[in-house]
Amino acid sequence: MSNAPVNYLDKAAEYGKSISYDRPASGQIYGFVRDAIVSMELLPGQMISETALAAKFGVSRTPVREALIKLANLGFVEVLPQRGTYVSKFSMKNILEARFIREALEVSVVSYLAEHTQPEVIAAAEAIIAEQKLAAEADDALLFQSLDDKFHQVLANHTGHARVAEKIEEEKAHMDRVRNLSLHMRGQYKRILTQHRAIIRAIKAGSKDEAISAMSIHMRGIYKVLDTLPQEHPEYFQ
């Protein structure tokens, strides 16, 4: 991954053309900036210009400011008085806290699915795994991560509890930037595919204990990543 920042403002200008004025602009701008941060198009420590974003989106500074305040409240940006707004650097505390919360939720999801096995969720998950294999072979890290998100969303959505999927999405965002970097580590694609297959095998077999074990192993993979990334990219960490 290059250390040169992608010019996200060019993308903002294109995105701005499709902003729907039937919905609050601040929410749409929040989504765009959040995605740019998570995908590492906006790098940790990089400055975000409120004025430039407003100009590219074709809106006043008010919805941009509202979006940045929301991102600051969630820990994705830091507002420094008299200096500007910057993408927050990685916080070990936030990453580990998010992992803890997410594991609790994800384990509950697979526990439920193992006890309420549904052929459609098995089929959907296996199809995603097949797509992930192709993405891994093409070394398409962003597509692989997008499919990883889809895999977990499919499982959560089949519990019938909408807020579970929403909460997982919210918490995992703090881990996603690290995951983006980690996919370039040797063997990471294979490791994740193996873990996804183990999760689905356990659900298909109706084994609650095995499903819980497989998901716990999957969630704790972040520890291995955190052993190496701070040394490889110290500039991204607090």
Rank of each mutant, 00 (worst) to 15 (best):
S111Q: 14
L80S: 06
S18M: 13
I19A: 08
L74S: 11
T117S: 03
E126Q: 12
V107Y: 00
L96T: 10
E66M: 15
Q132Y: 01
L96F: 10
E66Y: 14
A135W: 01
P81T: 06
A127R: 07
R23W: 12
A52L: 13
Y21P: 04
V121R: 00
F57I: 06
R99K: 12
H116N: 15
Y30T: 11
Q46R: 04
D35T: 15
P81I: 07
K89D: 07
E97Y: 11
E103S: 15
K93E: 12
A125E: 00
T51Y: 10
Y112N: 05
S146P: 01
F32S: 06
E126H: 05
S108Q: 09
L105H: 03
Y30N: 10
E50T: 14
E78M: 06
M92W: 06
E115Q: 07
I122Q: 00
L142R: 09
S88D: 02
T51N: 13
L143P: 00
I122V: 02
E106I: 02
S26F: 14
E97F: 10
V64F: 01
A36L: 07
A52N: 11
K150A: 12
I122Y: 00
H152T: 02
A127Y: 03
T51P: 07
R83S: 15
R34N: 10
I122M: 00
Q46C: 06
E78W: 01
A104F: 12
A104G: 15
G75N: 03
D22Y: 15
T85Y: 07
R34H: 10
L71E: 09
F151G: 04
K93H: 12
K150G: 07
S18Q: 14
V77K: 01
S49N: 05
S20Y: 07
